[in-house]
Nucleic acid binder design. Structure first.
Lengths: 237, 237
DNA sequence: GGAGAAAAGATTGCATACGATTTTTGCGAT
DNA sequence: ATCGCAAAAATCGTATGCAATCTTTTCTCC
């Protein structure tokens, strides 16, 4: 009975919080761009979709609003975030500040097991790049983010790790919105270079490579305001 | 109209969210150490105390749990966070990574109005240090944190600003728990030096001073495990 | 008297209900 | 046909109720 109806939504998460499970699925959907920015996420809809009451759906949406992935307006509802160019710049400014330091910390804590995990991660990343199609592109963005999350977990600071989770999620949104080309293939090779530096314990080099990597990602964005930002906001789309 | 109702931190909060107001008050109480680490915050108690239902009290507690100021255990309730020495170290490691960069950004954006605000802030800080007594010490810790928050707001990156809000709040908890002496008077002069550097537009110097300042704060902590950490955790007090 | 088990009490997780607010729809006037 | 306004529908904010879980007390048995 449990197995049957909890097939897809709400993974296993028996003792876990249901709201958390819903948040995770919604976050994946947002980061994967299956939910477009501006989409309304009504409490009732989310609730019926995941077969829970509005109470827990609301809790999930509140969590996402804390992470900056949805914006809530009083008495109006929750919407998938539509980050402005300015917000996008701030996301990357934050990453430039934090990630080089994370790379240094990670370099000092790398173990052979970590190296194996990174190689598996990069393999998967390469596979998605080889594929074509919109679905592959989404997976590609997600895999690219996972590299940075893996690095954060190796660094061993859970606070910074959580910050990075938020920043990576928001970056994915920004890239989906403002991304120009397939810089990702270039990003893939940069990831490999970073791993090389980490593997050889060259913390400084890893840090510098990371900084450049972030610069490259941001440089690929087209952050000019398009077709009147006020109108866009007013129309909420 | 705008001026009238936005007098101060919206205690009345007519159109504001009530849960948010409760969160703010609870946060202040935690940071001020009026609520000791480990204290249980039951939904019902908080609700009756603020004259709201459990629903909104619960929302406030959820917010605080996101910020790391309370820890919630399923089916058991919410407790004021009791950061471990390891957690304390990670808080300061995060600050060492972020705040020097914030100082640089702030130095580049300082205006005369900002300088005035900083001077007022430092005046108040000095006043609390001059006073004696436990209440003054609490205000002193809070004022010291406010300096860093003011700096973050000047830096102009709302994402980093929110990160700093969390880090400063957790720092206050840590200092209250593990703080040794009145390093704060020393911290006050360091704040003044930082302001000097900011005022003269010397970003590099401000950044370096900030890094040392954080080091000094952490150096004043006694992060040795005291009287068995496992026992302490087990007894939850 | 102490240890263990069962019951009572307290607290959380979740669903539902109801008033308030916003958005949409329907209808008549210009 | 368009605009304005009022009623209806939808949605949110919040309170409350019930079942599940945890804690404490009490009772029994050794």
């Amino acid at each position: 009975m449990n197995i049957a109806d909890q097939t897809f939504p709400a993974v296993d998460s028996a003792n876990e919080d249901r709201a958390q499970a819903i948040r995770d699925q919604l976050r994946d959907a947002i980061v994967d761009r299956r939910l477009a920015p501006g989409t309304k996420l009504s409490e009732g809809e989310v609730g019926t979709l995941f077969d829970v009451s509005r109470t827990v759906a609301r809790a999930a949406l509140q969590m996402l609003s804390f992470e900056g992935l949805v914006r809530t307006e009083r008495n109006r509802g929750a919407f998938v975030a539509n980050p402005s160019p300015e917000e996008a710049r701030q996301v990357f400014a934050s990453r430039r500040l934090i990630e080089p330091g994370i790379a240094i910390a990670a370099a000092e804590r790398m173990t052979p097991a970590h190296v194996v995990a990174f190689k598996a991660q990069l393999d998967e990343e390469g596979r998605f790049i080889a594929e074509r199609g919109p679905s592959a592109r989404r997976s590609e963005i997600k895999a690219s983010g996972d590299f940075h999350l893996l690095l954060a977990s190796v660094a061993g600071n859970v606070i910074l790790q959580r910050f990075m989770e938020e920043l990576v999620a928001r970056s994915s949104l920004v890239i989906a919105l403002y991304g120009r080309s397939g810089v990702s293939s270039c990003g893939h090779s940069e990831h490999m270079n970073i791993l090389e530096a980490l593997e050889s314990g060259n913390a400084e080099r890893a840090s510098a490579l990371m900084l450049h990597h972030i610069d490259h990602i941001e440089a690929d964005l087209d952050l000019r305001v398009r077709s009147g930002p006020a109108l866009r906001q007013a129309l909420e789309f």
